[in-house]
Amino acid sequence: MNLLQSIWRSSLGKKYIMALTGAGLFLFVTGHMVGNLQFFLPPEAINRYGHFLKTTPEILWPARIGLLAMVALHIASAVTLSAKNKAARPQPYAGKTKDLGASVASRTMLMSGLIVLAFIIYHLLHFTAVVDSINGAGFDFDQLYEPNSGHPDIYAMIVCGFSVWYVALFYLVAVGLLCVHLGHGLAAMFQSLGLKDHVWGPRIGAFAKAASLAIFLGYASIPVSVLVFGHGKAYADVVKAGIVPDAAGAVKALKGGAK
């Protein structure tokens, strides 16, 4: 039997796939977060970053395909393993003790994973495919252009996107669940790959907690800063002035101030 077949056919093999794709996705999530945090720099920074990615297909497409493959493998393994797990316990218990030392995170990995997946799909439609009917803002984000360069204005898109409270809330819930998912998954990843023992176990556990919390704070900081602190609102109003009539007054005020 060749290696790939034997990996896929064994339960442990699928756990290795889960762990390795999980590791890859964690790295992506970390990188993506670092990229996003440019939101706290002047608008040109993140817009330049976005423009660079969009105009460099030799980076963009391999990354997209790689990510898609990892997500697909991660999910395929998870779903097949879960099906086998369900089959292994056809009848549940009636007794009152339920958790038996298992954390909520560990018992809800499939659920948190699926919700995060649903969010990712929305997120892609929202900001990548830029489907205007789902953004809740009432206009098409494709029409936001950076005043100076004329490139698509990602900064303004983020501000406008998160100005819709329920979109921001969904985002927060999703990154919250991602944090829960990672809090367990990161440690389990080391366990699955056999990189854990009594010495490294506690260290890995602490790393998993810290890293997942950092991911949550990093991602959550953006919608919170927009919705709660109005970060970038003034700038976005200027950008969207051309497409949204209500914003015209604000644009005038800004232009006047600039003189």
């Binding site: 030392g101 560990s106 440690a187």
Partner: peptide
């Protein structure tokens, strides 16, 4: 695997009981 046991999702219940 052939016996039909499930897989480890590292919940730790086994160790606990």
């Amino acid at each position: 695997d052939a016996e039909g046991f499930g897989n480890c999702t590292v919940t730790g219940s086994c160790e606990a009981v």
